[in-house]
């Protein structure tokens, strides 16, 4: 059992030691490739540097630093990501999908579901975050800050 736990921990350490620098270098390589496709401007218009020069400089710096990362003496065995984080992330996906119906329906549903998934069971509290608080925020921003929200099932009722 202890061996299994140790191997999980060393697996986690390997993720931060090798996989993360690897992913960063891959990201930078892709971004660098994109910079080579930027338009180049004539010498007279370039004002000191070409548009691709500065991003390329930063990307090279990032690649260089990523290469140093595995040799740093700060590798940690991080605890596993708790299920509640994955649930919260999944709810964010639901939020994104629901925004196609209505921004405030999405916000209310997300708030209620997040609260419930984090252990809230009191009806009053759930109503507060699902219904009352989103309504308050909507009218605060609409009437006081004059923000016009995207049209949807609910907001159409107000905007007509």
């Amino acid at each position: 059992m202890a061996n299994q736990s140790n191997s999980i921990k060393s697996g986690s350490a390997n993720v931060s030691r090798w996989v993360i620098p690897g992913l960063i270098i891959l990201f930078c390589a892709i971004a660098f490739n994109l910079t080579t496709q930027f338009d180049r401007v004539p010498e007279i218009l370039k004002r000191g540097i070409q548009p691709s020069d500065f991003p390329q400089l930063i990307l090279l710096l990032l690649i260089g630093l990523a290469c140093l990362l595995p040799f740093e003496n700060t590798q940690h065995n991080r605890p596993a990501v708790p299920p509640s984080v994955f649930i919260s992330l999944a709810l964010m996906v639901v939020f994104v999908l629901l925004t196609h119906l209505d921004f405030f329906i999405a916000l209310g549903c997300f708030s209620g579901m997040l609260s419930f998934s984090w252990g809230e069971r009191r009806l009053g509290a759930l109503l507060l975050v699902t219904l009352f608080f989103p309504t308050f925020v909507f009218f605060l921003f609409d009437l006081v800050f004059e923000v016009r929200f995207p049209r949807g099932l609910l907001t159409n009722l107000w905007y007509g």
Binding site: S111, W118, F133
Partner: peptide
């Protein structure tokens, strides 16, 4: 936290949009 953070999320999203 079950009340605070859903409210923070709501403020965050509306604030980002506004």
């Amino acid at each position: 936290l079950t009340i605070l953070w859903p409210m923070v999320f709501l403020f965050s999203m509306v604030g980002a949009y506004a």
